[in-house]
């Protein structure tokens, strides 16, 4: 099924990460480059020159494809690290 996300100009020109939160129970990350660390309490996702760290409880990878990553669980904190 085609995705119906709204594309903002910033997404195209600045190559900003698309991170969609569904409450604090699910997060969808598009355009990821891999996982640096995975445990039920912490997941570190690589995305070009930045890292996205998710902290919480019972974190599970609901879906991992070359295009997107869907993580479920109880998400408590999110960090974006550049460089």
């Amino acid at each position: 099924m085609p995705k119906k996300w709204t594309i903002f100009p910033g997404e195209i020109f600045a190559d900003l990460p698309k991170v969609v939160f569904l409450g604090n129970e699910m997060v969808i990350v598009e355009g990821h480059k891999g996982i640096q660390f995975y445990s039920p309490e912490e997941i570190k996702i690589i995305r070009f020159n930045e890292k996205i760290t998710l902290e919480g409880k019972n974190l599970e990878i609901f879906l991992i494809t070359s295009e997107e990553l869907q993580i479920t669980g109880q998400i408590e904190r999110v960090y974006f690290e550049r460089g």
Binding site: G34, I35, Q36, Y38, E60, I61, L63, I64, T65, S66
Partner: peptide, 18 residues
């Protein structure tokens, strides 16, 4: 486990309910 997941998605192997 991380290397396993990264290799899987880079080879277009979709994984669910990890």
């Amino acid at each position: 486990v991380e290397r396993f997941l990264n290799l899987a998605f880079s080879r277009q192997v979709d994984l669910r309910e990890v």
